[in-house]
Simulated scan of single mutants.
Amino acid sequence: MPPNNIHHHILDNLKTAILLVEPNLTVSYINPAAESLLAVSDQRIHGEAITRLFHEQEDTLVKLLDAINNCEAYTKRETVLTLRSGAEITVDYAVTPVLEGQRTSLIIELQPLDRLLRISREEGLLSSQQNSQALIRGIAHEVKNPLGGLRGAAQLLARELSDARLHDYTNIIIEEADRLRNLVDTMLGPHKAPEKQNTNIHEVLERVRQLVEAESDGYLQVIRDYDPSIPDVLGDREQLIQAFLNVMRNAQQALKQDPPEDGEPTVILRTRSMRQFTIGSHRYRLVCRVDIVDNGPGIPEDLRASIFLPMVSGRAQGSGLGLSIAQSILNHHNGLIECKSEPGHTEFSLFIPLEQAS
């Protein structure tokens, strides 16, 4: 049931992706919004089975045939569709039967959710980071004041003690007070505002690569996939080195502790530029994206939502501060770190704006 000229004009100008499906489950029409969403042209898909266009985990054909045979509409929320290119998109979609005589066709409306879900996730990350920093600042104030008094009292006590052996105890008090103060300072992240200047992101990554390769003593393979056209970022070189180094060391330590069964421990450093990209609630004309990908064991599912919080670590010897500090540094550069992980593939994506927000 292809649309007539009037309906064709209306559907072509809708922002909602629309597909018309024949009773034999072949596609008779998709509008431009659907062409853009599904990365296919109307002419190319015309007359093809709907399953050639996309499929999902559930049996799409069974549900569509039920809708035709029973003339019942249905809606699905936050469904992941795999396109013919292999890419995945998250959508809400509604299927509406259209009865014309003895013939039932289907109208499928697709609402893309990936951008909305990503913006919501990023805003949640930023909000969580801000809340944790506010909490840490409050704790630092409450802890460092009495620590100063404790340390001062121990120093005064040491001067009054005539027995040199008792100085060991006051020294322990002073050293432990200093250790706690340093821990609180580390949790607070960088002590000074970033001194931003034009910085070549690849020089930063090469410095990080050299440090990690020296530490790994040859057991780690680092593959570089750089886009040389990326312009300089406005950032603090030393702080950016610290942020990338923290993420790289996480990958290095995970691979050393649990190397892959197939192949050698590998980290990929990849840079790309992104246009018209949104970070949180701000849209930037141009953004630098740095991916740090490893083939390690992956991050446990119960830790993935909290890995950027202070004192959260998947390793017994880990401090749980590296990723929190890295995220804080990126936030100071109006950027963000995201992570997706599964066994054999963990990918940290670091985004740094190259333009002012619009």
Rank of each mutant, 00 (worst) to 15 (best):
N4E: 01
N4G: 05
N5S: 12
H8S: 09
P23D: 00
L25M: 03
T26M: 02
A33C: 11
S41L: 02
R44L: 01
A49T: 02
F54W: 08
H55N: 08
E58F: 09
D59H: 13
L61E: 13
I68D: 00
T79F: 02
T82W: 00
R84S: 12
R84I: 00
A87I: 02
T90Y: 01
V98C: 05
T104M: 01
S105H: 05
L106F: 00
L117F: 06
G124R: 11
L126A: 09
Q129L: 13
Q129G: 09
R137E: 15
G138H: 10
R151H: 08
L161Y: 04
R165F: 05
D168E: 04
T170V: 04
N171P: 01
N171Q: 14
R179L: 09
N182D: 11
P190G: 08
P190W: 15
P194R: 10
K196W: 03
K196T: 06
L205K: 13
D217I: 09
Y219D: 08
D232P: 00
D236H: 07
Q239F: 03
Q239N: 03
N246Y: 09
N246W: 06
M248C: 13
R249I: 04
N250T: 11
G263N: 10
E264K: 12
V267E: 11
V267N: 15
L269Y: 13
R270W: 02
M274N: 10
M274S: 11
G280E: 04
Y284H: 15
V290C: 13
I292H: 01
V293P: 02
P297K: 09
L321N: 08
I325V: 15
Q327G: 07
S328N: 06
S341C: 09
G344F: 05
H345F: 08
F351M: 10
Q356F: 08
A357K: 14
